[in-house]
């Protein structure tokens, strides 16, 4: 195993998967010659040619719509949306078509498309480069959603998405592209969709998180050391959701705090809280709490730290619940 940055693990995945399957191709803005603004697709055009690493115009609905046609002809396209909020024009194709074709055709059409994008804040960028749009995707029938928090999972979940017969959206924590390093298995490496990861074992309280909120939750668990034994559950896959792992952890600790960077109302944390209310109520020692962003556009850099869930806010929520 080699140590890699999170974005290097994604690039490694592409090299492995395009070599493995000649139907896999990459398309997006600046992905070819430039290798992507974050260098996730570096070297692919030189190695696999411009037909399998396609530079596109700035046209997100066109990119995803083109991928629909490519899927119909047997390709497995991976579309890069340059930033989280740049994906919104593509929602047109995603919501109206991509998620519905299989159903509409009674299973007659298959859409093995992967849509990946850098997401989330903490990088001092202006508002439309910091969004956490996972809820839009999770709420769309026919779409699967995964969010890695480690370099190994960034490689493994992308490989799983590329090999999956259904449309999968992968949100990659851009904050950690070049700030998080970890062991990454060499060669083919697949992290199955729908399986959570126990990032840290504990007995008193569970922090449920995904993506960039996982390392933050681990830091909060460290800060609580000596007060409580804190478990950190990394969901990895939002849809399908590993309910079994969630309910097992809730049953073990009896206390759950969900950490989510996205705005609060109807965010994915609310779905987790609903699942716990329906299926774990008798295991719980106190209310399910959420630490989230706020219901405002993502603020500019002078005040973005106040928006983002912090270790302090997570610790405060945990203490409140432990004292309930």
């Amino acid at each position: 195993m080699a140590e890699k940055l999170l974005v290097e693990a994604i690039n490694d995945c592409f090299h492995v998967e395009l070599e493995r399957d000649e139907n896999v191709m990459v398309m997006g803005e600046d992905v070819g010659r430039a290798g992507g603004v974050f260098r996730a697709t570096a070297g692919l055009r030189d190695r696999f040619g411009p037909d399998r690493c396609v530079d596109t115009p700035l046209a997100e609905a066109g990119i995803l719509g083109t991928a629909v046609g490519l899927c119909m002809a047997g390709w497995r396209p991976v579309c890069e949306m340059q930033y989280d909020a740049f994906s919104y024009p593509a929602l047109d194709q995603l919501i109206t078509h991509v998620g519905r074709y299989r159903w509409r055709t009674g299973g007659g059409m298959e859409f093995p498309v992967t849509i990946r994008m850098p997401y989330g804040g903490g990088v001092r960028a202006p508002e439309l480069h910091d969004d956490s749009p996972e809820t839009y995707y999770v709420h769309t029938p026919g779409i699967k959603v995964a969010i890695p928090s480690t370099p190994a999972d960034a490689k493994g979940l992308l490989a799983a998405a590329i090999r999956d017969p259904d449309p999968v959206v992968i949100l990659e924590p851009k904050l950690h592209y070049r700030t998080l390093r970890g062991e990454v298995p060499e060669g083919e490496h697949v992290t199955p969709l729908g399986k959570a990861r126990l990032a840290r074992e504990g007995t008193d309280l569970t922090l449920v998180a995904y993506g960039s909120m996982v390392p933050l939750s681990e830091a909060a668990a460290d800060a609580l050391a000596g007060e409580a034994s804190v478990e950190v559950l990394d969901l990895r896959s939002l849809k399908p959701l590993d309910e079994e792992a969630l309910l097992a952890s809730a049953a073990k600790t009896g206390r759950v705090v969900i950490v989510q960077e996205a705005p609060r109302v109807a965010g994915f944390a609310a779905e987790i809280a609903a699942v716990l209310a329906e299926k774990a109520i008798l295991d719980l020692q106190g209310p399910v709490l959420r630490v989230t962003g706020y219901d405002v556009p993502y603020p500019y850099w002078q005040i973005e730290d106040a928006y983002m869930p912090s270790v302090e806010r997570v610790v405060d929520a945990a203490r409140k619940l432990l004292a309930f």
């Binding site: 629909v68 899927c71 119909m72 390709w75 055709t105």
Partner: peptide
């Protein structure tokens, strides 16, 4: 939303202009 995959009908479309990008993708393929 009429489809006939076997006969090369990639579908009717309730959203005006919705089928155009898929035609570009099929042609690219």
């Amino acid at each position: 939303h009429l489809y006939d995959v076997e006969r090369g009908n990639l579908g009717a479309n309730a959203v005006v202009g919705g089928g155009l990008p898929a035609i570009v993708g099929s042609a690219l393929a």
